[in-house]
Simulated assay, not measured.
Amino acid sequence: MLREKGALTSDWMSAYRAVPRDAFVPDRLWPGTAGGNRQGEVIDRNTDPARWWGKVYSDVPLTTQWDDGAHTGTDKGRSPTSSNSMPKMVFSMLDTLCVERGNRVLEVGTGTGWNAALLAYRLGPDNVVTVEVDPAVAEEARRRLAAVGLTPVTVVGDGAQGHVKGAPYDRIIATCGISRVPYAWVEQAVEGAVIVAPWGPPYGGQAVARLTVGEGGVAMGPFVMSSAFMRLRDQRDTFPPTDAFPGAANRPSTAAQRTTPLSPDGMGDWHHMFTLGVQVPDMFCRVERGEDGAYRLWLFDMGCTSWATGDYEPGRTEFEVAEYGPRHLWSEAEAVMSWWREQGEPRFERYGLTVTPSGQTVWLDSPDNPVPVRVS
Rank of each mutant, 00 (worst) to 15 (best):
R144G: 14
L150C: 07
P182E: 00
L118V: 00
L119I: 07
R122N: 03
A117Q: 00
P168V: 03
E132T: 13
G149V: 01
G177N: 02
I178T: 09
M220D: 14
W114P: 04
G216C: 13
V156T: 14
V190H: 01
T130V: 07
E191M: 12
V181Y: 03
A193S: 10
G200C: 01
W199H: 10
I178P: 07
D170I: 00
P222D: 09
V213K: 06
P135T: 08
G166Q: 03
A184H: 07
R122G: 01
D134A: 11
G204Q: 03
L150D: 02
Y169K: 08
T130C: 10
E140P: 10
P222K: 10
T130Y: 02
P201K: 02
M220Y: 13
V181P: 04
A116L: 03
A138G: 13
R171K: 13
L211G: 11
G159F: 03
P135G: 12
A219K: 03
L150N: 02
A116G: 09
I178A: 10
I195Y: 06
V131W: 01
E187H: 14
R180S: 11
A184C: 09
A207V: 07
M220K: 15
A174Q: 02
V190C: 05
G177Y: 00
V131I: 09
S179N: 06
Y203M: 10
D126Y: 12
T154V: 15
N115W: 00
Q188P: 15
A117H: 00
K165D: 13
R210W: 07
E132C: 14
E191K: 13
A167M: 04
T212Y: 12
L119G: 08
G177P: 02
N127P: 15
V218Y: 06
G162F: 02
V218S: 11
R143H: 13
S179M: 00
V186Y: 11
V137C: 10
L211Y: 04
G124W: 00
A160C: 14
P202G: 10
V181T: 09
P198G: 07
P182N: 07
V213W: 05
V218C: 14
T151A: 13
T154F: 06
R180C: 06
V137F: 04
K165V: 13
G216P: 11
A120S: 15
A141W: 00
A207P: 11
V218L: 09
G124D: 08
V181N: 03
S179L: 00
H163W: 14
A167F: 01
N115M: 04
L123G: 10
N115H: 01
V194W: 00
I195H: 06
E132N: 09
T212M: 13
E215R: 15
E140Y: 05
A116P: 15
D170Y: 03
G162P: 05
V153Q: 06
A136E: 09
V190F: 02
A184P: 10
A136C: 14
G205T: 02
P135H: 11
V137P: 13
V155N: 06
V128L: 05
N127L: 07
G204L: 03
R180Y: 05
A184I: 07
A219G: 12
A136G: 09
L118D: 01
I178M: 08
A146H: 12
V186L: 10
M220F: 15
W114K: 11
I173V: 11
G124Q: 07
A141I: 02
A167N: 09
